[in-house]
Design a binder for these strands. Structure first.
Lengths: 121, 121
DNA sequence: ACATATTACTTTGTCTGTCAATGTAATTTA
DNA sequence: TAAATTACATTGACAGACAAAGTAATATGT
């Protein structure tokens, strides 16, 4: 893990990242933790404490829902599922990110940029 | 000012943005404030309080230096100049941003991205 | 068999950057 | 001459990220 990435550069994207993972199927905390590391190509680790904080936040806001897995041995894995409003939220966040990315390019690079502006979505 | 951009999406880029402005010539607080709004195409306003906080931070760390303009009427404009380490810092920050941007794309968009990976500089 | 590592979830407290609110004072415009 | 703009500054609050520490189960190594 090179981890060049300062926490402030990711700040604000945590929720979007989690929602993206959950959009591809239900998952539980530790697995999501591993998935994010893998997705980043081992470049970024979203810390566990941050993750679990985000789960609370997202659930409270109704973007995800949780249920315990039926592991039959102890109260093991807590699974998360993305809700409909969660999917909407993800789409919105993704748009915002594309928008912000373009503005940031303008602000960080010197003058006027060519145009690498295709929100895709 | 549509200001779609949440503060958390910019967080961590403030210093880089300021250094970028100062790289194109000395300037003073209020002008930098206006320049950033213009540079963003009126899409983003870096708040004054944030700016002045950043000036302190950057000066303390030796990335910028300040001097009073010779307005001869009152202690008017405080100009800022980017230092050599400031220029280096800017370059580093820009690289970090390109790197983080690519990782973020991976984390926010679903699967594996094509490749829009040319750090430029 | 026993220690260690890994899986899995949780809480508490701290730090940092951003910004609202507020203030001062000079200059410019209506 | 009142109001707006320019220009700089401080204070206090808030939110997100995370280090640290902990609990408890299962798996692995020796």
């Amino acid at each position: 893990m090179a981890s060049n990435i300062s926490t402030d550069l990711i700040r604000g994207h945590t929720d979007t990242i989690i929602l993206n993972v959950l959009q591809q199927g239900d998952s539980y905390g530790y697995q999501i933790y591993k998935t994010i590391i893998a997705l980043s190509g081992n470049q970024y680790e979203l810390k566990e404490a941050t993750l679990y904080t985000a789960f609370r936040r997202l659930e409270k806001e109704g973007y995800i829902a949780s249920y315990w897995g039926d592991e039959t041995q102890g109260g093991r894995r807590k699974y998360y599922r993305i809700t409909e409003t969660g999917v909407e939220r993800y789409r919105k966040n993704k748009q915002d990110w594309h928008f912000a990315k373009n503005v940031l390019n303008q602000l960080i690079e010197g003058g006027i940029q060519n145009e690498e502006n295709k929100p895709g979505s």
